[in-house]
Every structure is written in C-alpha cells, then in structure tokens.
C-alpha cells in the first residue's frame, strides 16, 4: 500500500479516536460512554492494522486481536459496573457517582 493511503488511514484512525474521546467526555450516560470507548478503541486498532499492512508485518493484526481482547474485558467490566450502578443507585449518570472526591 502507498504512504498516502497509510496517512489517510491514520487520519481516519485519529478521527475515530477523537470522536470516541469526544463521546466519552461529552456524554453523561454510562452506556454511551462505553459505546464511545468502543469507537475510541477502533481508532488505534485501525492504525495498527493499517501500519501492519503498510510494512507487511503481521504484528499489526496481532495487536488488533489484543485490542479486541482488551475491549471485551473492558466492556465486561464497564457493563458490570453499569449494572451495579443501575441496580443499587438507580442512576445511569456517571456524573452522579462521585463520592471519591474532596
């Protein structure tokens, strides 16, 4: 693949990352934050794959599998926390759980 393509892919990846970051920061509902986190994760994974494709290194795709595993674990944890939150405090608002503050 050519460099311009790689750059294009990296820009797309950065864009995905930014969108995901924005979503995490801008949304209050935990579910949407988790969704945004997935989107964020897709960004670097695209970057990995694109870079692997460019250099012909399979490690890129291997990193993608790692990211998938990471995403799965993190979603599981996040959903568990979300369920916990919804059941005990009956809120879906991440802003409202802030007892660990001053």
């Amino acid at each position: 693949m050519t460099d311009t393509f790689l750059i294009g892919m990296l820009v797309l990846a950065a864009g995905l990352f930014a969108v995901g970051l924005f979503g995490v920061l801008a949304r209050r509902a935990v579910l949407f934050q988790l969704l945004s986190l997935e989107v964020m994760l897709s960004g670097p994974s695209l970057a990995f794959v694109a870079a692997g494709a460019r250099h012909g290194d399979p490690a890129g795709q291997g990193m993608f599998v790692l990211v998938l595993i990471l995403a799965a674990a993190e979603v599981a944890l996040g959903l568990a926390l979300y369920l916990r939150m919804a059941r005990t405090a009956d809120v879906t608002d991440s802003d409202s759980i802030r007892d660990l503050r001053h």
């Binding site: 934050q33 759980i97 802030r98 503050r101 001053h102």
Partner: peptide, 15 residues
C-alpha cells in the same frame, strides 16, 4: 477543586 469525583473529568485530564 480538581478532585471532582466525576469520571469524565478524570478521563479528560488523562487524555
């Protein structure tokens, strides 16, 4: 005041 307790703020700070 930095310690808001809000996840989003901490996330933003980290980012």
């Amino acid at each position: 005041r930095v310690q808001t307790g809000r996840v989003r703020d901490y996330g933003f700070a980290m980012a």
